[in-house]
Amino acid sequence: MKKSISIFAAAILMLLLPLTASAAARDTIKIVGSSTVYPFATVVAERFGKSTKFNTPVIESTGSGGGLKLFCKGIGVEHPDITNASRRIKQKEIDNCAKAGVTDIVEIKIGYDGIVIANSKKADVLALTKRQIFLALAPEIPHPNGAKQLIKNPNVTWRDVDSSLPNIKIEVLGPPPTSGTRDAFAELAMEGGCKTFKWLKDIKKENKKRYKAICRSVREDGPYIEAGENDNLIVQKLNANPKALGVFGYSFLVENSDSIQGSFVDGVLPTFENIAQGDYKVSRPLYFYVKKAHIGTIPGMKEFLREFTADKTIGQDGYLTDKGLIPMPSGEYSQFRSAARKLSTLSGLN
């Protein structure tokens, strides 16, 4: 019996041994960040891993904010090397980074993502305006008689919102507040519609907080249904319920173009060309941020940057466009490609 006890003890010791040495070295790039950039970054990582002698980078989907938080924790192998973001870094985050010693950050834009409002192909294509989206989904809307006064949103059907719209119940499946897609939807579509009321726009100058509360909130009394971060689930639910609309990234529309269709927003359909040319307004830039101090320490960083910014990746016909990424105009692209080559650091938000 004594023998087996000592075997147990040895096993525990053997387990504890690597703990001390665990954080010593790392030969795999670690990437965190946005769930919107995740499907693109993983494709690049996989190609990079399979075609070079470096390990395949490990990518964790933490959301843009969560990723930047981890990224800004410090320099060293225990911290991630790259973070993806579906929005630009904020000044507050740059400051937080600097506090932890992360001062040299390379910013690279990879392209754009459209946010689509889609429904099942079994139903008719909807033509919405941002104003109608705001009136359908805001918790409080301006009084219909034109008075400068907010009332609780009384709209139940799309017909209530505008007589040109079909007489079906407002049911919109969308992501929860933790999602970057939701942030962008609130900012671009909801606020975009809100701004069309001049008196609401004027509030921005007086009271920015109140303006944001009015324009970027989404109603919680039923018509907007939080469907979780899983965009696939939203697509499946749209197929089951042709009356419902869903809000998600353009890449999911590309993959499911046989069963769902995007709605017109302000007269423009979410197509590749329209988003690329900037005609479809509900779109946002996608970025990733690189810790310059890790280049040279973690093997393959430079080569990975090169792969990610190559013309065959994010150029006009790059392989990420097959996955639904909207490429940048060529002028902007060459600017970021040279930033990646020269590793020029972010000096401030301009």
Binding site: Y38, A45, E46, T56, E60
Partner: peptide, 9 residues
Amino acid sequence: IGMVAFVVD
């Protein structure tokens, strides 16, 4: 603890 990562290798 970050095990929801895309790991190819």
